[in-house]
Write a protein that binds this DNA or RNA. Structure first.
Length: 695
RNA sequence: CUGCCUGUAGCUCAGUUGGAUAGAGCGGCGGCCUUCUAAGCCGCGGGUCGGGGGUUCGAAUCCCUCCAGGCAGGCCA
């Protein structure tokens, strides 16, 4: 609510993380050990954000770099990594291995010489030479843990914004049918990206593009009007779930066209009327789109996914965005009217100059059809120009509902609204099958001379979701044994092949509810539903994020309905266990938290390797998230959360806290768990995984 | 035909800018609930990293080539 945006998610992380009261003092007075060696760069130093470990890494690398220069008189940028096992050390420099060739000496000798000469800050307790010639560092475990307790995982929230506005477009489901699991992958990835960017300090605007003048919507309008013979009032009166009705109708009308190709004329006529926004078909289109979008938003809200503004294609047309872009494209010579050939009468954009399109059979892309209608790419170029504030026009806006969500409009009168569009960077979350089209949009920007914007026009591509053979068979799409060779089945809205998002969510929730009620037979219905929802959200969202973007997800019910191992509930369970420790400590009248000063004074012997390993893993959280957001490989966030939870579960079994007699040992364990909790909460927040009280 | 993606354990997949003994989950087998809740933990078994060349002290990772699968190359989106 605070931001005035619709993007409302339970603020899981911040709710539980204690405010860092000493931040100002800390910035003014760097900890000993960091001070004299702090990087000269002010920006890095004052940011002092969460990148605690990466900052330390950079510092240590700088020290070693200097030493290499002093000892061997060569310039070398040392790589720093984390050794596979704690016995080997906490950080490792493979520099000697890299230098062996230029120096013509054995790596181990180089490493040994460096180890004897180099003076690292006090947080490094010991150095050793390991393996083929790694220079390994052992850190002060208590001190690192204490430092982590004192700092925000993602830095200072008041530290200011780190960039100009980033626009993220995601979801973009055609408003003519129910959302399916492929759309979920898009929405979840987009949502996690937004959460990560915001946490890293970037202002983000979330746009959900509504293609309400396209062929797909036209088909459903034809289905209602001509196939069913319904008018707008009758369609308005249809019961929910309206998007399910459309789902069936959409595949039905496809078959209806095939029966009589003449019926295609109805589609063209409807498309024209939608574009012109005239007549009963246009009215039907508005109605259908609106009802379906309502359903989509409801589905997404179940998963904690929201938006700032719905951008409607009809407004791009209604406000002559394309006409404006068309003028620019013509004036710059980016497109021309084809006088002859198969594209005669079309305005086309030549792609042959661009190296990206080398080897293309047909090097021209139609932007305006011979009948005067505009292709999707054409509208998308206009839309992209607006996103960067390059069009010289803006939409009008009105509130979508009462939740701070806005939609575009063609007429004035929506009252004062936030400033939309005009981003410095645009990230479009669109599946990899549309890479070709997204490239054309970029080329469009380039050919208008907006080379920088073209560079900051990012297609966040991910592979599609198909149905595993088992899933396809379960749903009756594959029958018999004739299709034995087929590995998976591609979903198709047009053919009505797919798993609807709400159906899947219902199924997961049902299973969660069963599991919970088995464990807690006395739980009231409301709590039961609530818990089931939280678990289902976690299971589904995590399932979508853990896959790397380059891999097709062959959706399988067994995988998606699994709550053990690499799943969302596994993460949640670790948090429940952590909470139980504190609950029991409190019930026993014992201290539930340790402070950094106490931890700093604890004996080094208290930190067992696996306990320390949990801390060191947590210390890499922000760095991992930064890398994930920067590379758009969000599965790294999921992996980090898994690794952290896994190590916690191990520690939970091996190092009991409640019945540990030695108070200092108990404190060390508590500190490690506190560090875990802090990082894990931050990660779960990014992943949109709710944290249940029990499970 | 051209471009992009994928090929790692029975299955589903990780594997950071080339580096330490190629990891995890599921499934299989065997342990662990009088315990800070077993949606968990521990152990065992399981690998020509698609094939072949090359670069390198070192290749699952980089280069070349071949094979297999997926997607794209519409006046559909």
């Amino acid at each position: 609510m605070g931001s005035g945006l619709s993007y409302q998610v339970p603020d899981i992380a911040t709710a539980d993380i204690p405010e860092n009261a000493s931040r100002e003092a800390e910035i003014g007075a760097p900890r000993p050990g960091f001070g004299p060696l702090a990087p000269a760069s002010d920006s890095l130093y004052t940011r002092r954000i969460m990148l605690e470990l990466s900052l330390l890494k950079a510092e240590l690398a700088a020290v070693l770099k200097r030493q290499i220069h002093d000892t061997f008189a060569v310039e070398h940028e040392p790589v720093i990594q984390v050794p596979p096992r704690r016995e080997l050390g906490d950080l490792a420099f493979p520099a000697a291995l890299h230098l062996a060739k230029t120096l013509r000496r054995k790596p181990r000798d180089i490493a040994t010489e460096l180890a004897e000469a180099v003076r690292f800050p006090g947080i490094v307790l010991r150095v050793s030479v390991e393996g083929a010639g790694y220079l390994n560092l052992f850190l002060d475990r208590g001190r690192v843990t204490a430092d982590l307790l004192e700092t925000e995982v993602f830095g200072d929230p008041a530290g200011g914004e780190r960039s100009e506005k980033i626009i993220v477009e995601h979801t973009n489901i055609n408003p003519n049918k129910a959302a399916h699991i492929g759309h979920l992958r898009n929405a979840v990835l987009g949502d996690v990206l937004v959460r990560a960017l915001r946490r890293l300090g970037h202002p983000v605007e979330i746009q959900n593009y509504i293609d309400d003048t396209g062929v797909q919507l036209a088909d459903v309008v034809v289905a209602f009007t001509d196939l069913r013979g319904l008018d707008a009032a009758a369609v308005a009166a249809l019961p929910e779930p309206f998007d399910y009705t459309c789902w069936d109708l959409y595949s039905e009308v496809g078959r209806w066209y095939e029966e009589d190709p003449e019926r295609q004329a109805l589609r063209r006529q409807t498309l024209h009327e939608l574009e012109a926004d005239e007549g009963p078909r246009a009215e039907m289109g508005r109605l259908v789109a609106r009802r379906v979008v309502h359903r989509h938003l409801t589905t997404m809200r179940r998963l904690g996914i929201g938006y700032d503004v719905l951008t409607r294609e009809s407004d791009i047309l209604g406000l002559d965005f394309f006409t404006r872009a068309f003028e620019k494209l013509k004036a710059s010579g980016a497109i021309h009217l084809e006088e002859s050939g198969k594209n005669q009468g079309c305005w086309v954009m030549p792609l042959s100059q661009s190296a990206e399109f080398a080897g293309l059979e047909d090097p021209d892309k139609v932007i305006v059809r011979s009948d005067g209608t505009v292709t999707y790419v054409g509208k998308d170029i206009a839309y992209q120009l607006w996103k960067f504030g390059l069009l010289g026009r803006d939409f009008h806006y009105r509130k979508w509902g009462d939740e701070g969500l806005w939609e575009t409009a063609s007429e004035e009168g929506g009252g004062t609204h936030p400033a939309f569009g005009g981003g410095a960077k645009v990230i479009n979350v669109i599946d990899a099958r549309q890479s070709y089209l997204q490239k054309i949009v970029r080329v469009g920007l380039e050919s208008l001379g907006h080379t920088e914007e073209a560079e900051r026009s990012i297609h966040f591509a991910y592979e599609m979701v198909s149905l595993s053979k088992a899933a396809a068979r379960q749903l009756g799409y594959l029958t018999g044994d004739g299709d034995g060779e087929q590995k998976s089945l591609e979903m198709s809205g047009r053919k009505g092949i797919g798993v609807k998002a709400d159906d899947l969510l219902d199924q997961i929730e049902d299973k969660c509810r069963d599991n919970v009620s088995e464990r807690y037979p006395d739980l009231d219905a409301e709590s039961l539903d609530d818990l089931a929802r939280q678990l289902a959200t976690a299971a589904l969202r995590f399932f979508m994020v853990k896959a790397t973007t380059t891999r097709v997800i062959a959706f399988d019910f067994q995988d998606a309905l699994s709550f053990e191992g690499e799943t969302g509930p596994y993460l949640q369970y670790s948090m429940v266990r952590e909470r139980n420790i504190r609950r029991k400590l409190e019930a026993a009248g014992m201290e539930t938290e340790v402070d950094a000063e106490t931890v700093r004074g604890l004996d080094a012997e208290l930190w067992a390797d696996d306990l320390w390993d949990l801390v060191l893993t947590a210390a890499q959280t922000a760095e991992t998230v930064e890398k994930a957001a920067g590379s758009l490989e969000l599965s790294m966030i999921a992996r980090q959360a898994l690794e952290l939870a896994g190590k916690f579960h191990g520690v939970y079994h091996r190092h009991r806290i409640l019945d540990e007699a030695d108070p200092d040992l108990r404190r060390a364990r508590m500190a490690a768990v506190q560090v875990f909790r802090k990082s894990s909460l931050a990660l779960l927040d990014l992943l949109g995984v709710p944290v249940p009280e029990k499970m």
